[in-house]
């Protein structure tokens, strides 16, 4: 029953190629003629004074998904109700059909990490995530999609492999999957594993949309920077994914060191080409 409900929600989504809306590239995003899908970092939105560019996208029918980054769903402590209320408020403001957050924690012991950190793949972490996601979904007006993150290290003493952990989490929470292909690539490369092996074991039919971002290698490790071009290997993985299953949306995240508009357009066109989705430029 539950899986069926999720299937209906994913099936209802009609997104296409999208891009993360950021104030720095608001003009570029507004000028994309075919755009039907964007995302905004929920914590960057002041609900009392939302950016006009964002409301303009909403008003021209673009689906704008609020993407939370500070909920700390994977933290041992209960999720902060005010942060959940803000995410819910963003969904209402933007008329979004879903919101998204991460399989991660961002603070512990009263200290902010300043970034998304991996959770251990243990029963205890699965229970903490499940509790926090249930608390969150109880307050959200729309479904939640969960994004597995990129990490430079793993926790010791894992009780699940990555695919089993995620599959179990999605089943327990009835959440959709936000699959970041660049994260899959980064983790596999840094672990010396085959990214396709993970793709082939994930419940691809639960994917609401897909993230893609750029990265770079430093000191022998691949960093998912969001400030570098999308590597050819990540585009190849997008192609492999879309050969297996066709998720409704594919979104480029760029968070700094913005290139000239022509380069961003080329990256969006490359996503369209790799996925078979229509161009938006």
């Amino acid at each position: 029953m539950a899986a069926e409900a999720v299937g209906v929600a994913v099936g209802d989504l009609d997104l296409g190629v999208g891009i993360g809306w950021r104030p720095d590239i608001a003009g570029f995003v507004a000028g994309l003629p075919g755009l039907r899908f964007a995302e905004v970092v929920a914590e960057s939105v002041n609900a009392g004074h939302p950016p006009e560019g964002l409301l303009a996208l909403r008003d021209r029918g673009v689906t704008v998904v609020p993407h939370g980054v500070r909920l700390s769903l994977g933290g041992a402590e209960p999720v902060d109700p005010q942060r959940v209320a803000h995410l819910a408020g963003c969904a209402d403001l933007l008329g979004a059909p879903l919101v998204s957050e991460h399989v991660a924690f961002v603070r512990a012991g009263g200290v902010e990490a300043g970034h998304l950190l991996p959770v251990p793949r243990t029963r205890a972490a699965l229970a903490a995530l499940t509790d926090n996601i249930a608390r969150t979904c109880a307050e959200l007006p729309v479904p939640l999609a969960l994004e597995p993150i990129a990490a430079l290290f793993d926790w010791p003493d894992a009780e699940y492999d990555e695919a089993d952990f995620l599959t179990e989490l999605l089943e327990r929470t009835d959440a959709m999957l936000l699959l970041d292909v660049a994260n899959v690539y980064a983790n596999a490369r840094n672990r010396g594993e085959d990214p396709l092996a993970l793709l082939d074991r994930l419940p691809l039919e639960r994917i609401a949309y897909v993230h893609v971002a750029g990265g770079a290698e430093h000191e022998g490790l691949y960093h998912d920077t969001h400030t570098d071009p999308v590597p050819a290997e990540v585009l190849a993985l997008v192609k492999e994914l879309y050969a297996r299953h066709r998720p409704p949306g594919l979104l480029l995240e760029r968070d700094g060191r913005y290139p000239p508009a022509g380069e961003l357009r080329d990256e969006l066109d490359a996503l369209a080409a790799a996925s078979g989705l229509p161009r938006v430029t």
Binding site: G75, A76, E77, F105, R107, A108, G109, V111, A113, L117, V119, P120, T122, R123, A124, A125, A127, A128
Partner: peptide
Amino acid sequence: PREDLAAAQAALVA
């Protein structure tokens, strides 16, 4: 287990 997780996460953040 939840308290263990909290302590382990705090140590990692530190």
